[in-house]
Nucleic acid binder design. Sequence first.
DNA 1: GTAGGTGCAAATCGTTTGCAGTACA
DNA 2: TGTACTGCAAACGATTTGCACCTAC
Lengths: 143, 143
Amino acid sequence: MRLTKRKIATILRQHGYKLTPQRQVVIQAITSSQDHLTPAAIYEKVHQDHPNIGLVTIYRTLEILAELELICKLHAGGSCRSYTISTPQHHHHLICSNCGTVVDFTGHNLSDLEQRLSKESRFRIDGHLLEFIGLCQACQKAP
Amino acid sequence: MRLTKRKIATILRQHGYKLTPQRQVVIQAITSSQDHLTPAAIYEKVHQDHPNIGLVTIYRTLEILAELELICKLHAGGSCRSYTISTPQHHHHLICSNCGTVVDFTGHNLSDLEQRLSKESRFRIDGHLLEFIGLCQACQKAP
DNA sequence: GTAGGTGCAAATCGTTTGCAGTACA
DNA sequence: TGTACTGCAAACGATTTGCACCTAC
């Protein structure tokens, strides 16, 4: 289950950030989308209904949301600066290369591999980046 | 075993690209480094001995090398546009977050997971991105 | 009331492109 | 010799910063 608008608002406040209308609009734009969104895409989405919100605000809001891990940055789908709403637990992403839809998945445990790698390479492994890319069901059917 | 300077030169020629001194220098810079290098880092490295090589040439050379899959693009270590020399077979990377050293690893098979995911999500999965990040042995010892 | 947030414009950074001259095959 | 390559400068797009004003708490 993904984070809701309301939960994000609470977490923001808990960390001392103010809940301005602009931030609410940006959060709404992200939570209501299945896609991964670039700052420019969010700006466009938001700009229709709220023409006075600046691109700068989008950037600053995204920075905060990313810092609080409320959104995740994606790499595999074109832009290296696109975001999707996060889920509370550790997860990975499956991205449609055509429409940009992002599906979360969990349950795959990389710790066996991490241990093996750690032993062989003598690295202390701190994290990983795992994304799958493909075509979603709808886009497979489309011509 | 990583690609050598000589092999890269051969492959370049096989694909109809000319082997200019500038390209040789760029290739030398990449093959002689354990790190993942950004275009700017390569430029600096190269610029010391060859002050007349422009940054533009670096970009254009990197584009060709990436197209021929002689170098790999990395994401997990800061810049999303850093490259490391490739290995002939399919592999993944383990990156030191401190010094940037890149270690290749192979043998981990993601196809089980891919099949499971494909079944559950009804995606047709075309590829993946897997990188580990941590500290190499030398950097663990350093203060 | 005040610290933090916003919006504008300008600065900055990384990357790409046009073009005239140069050099590899 | 001809085509591809290079280097410069300029253009470009994305992101950041300075600053004056504004607003959520």
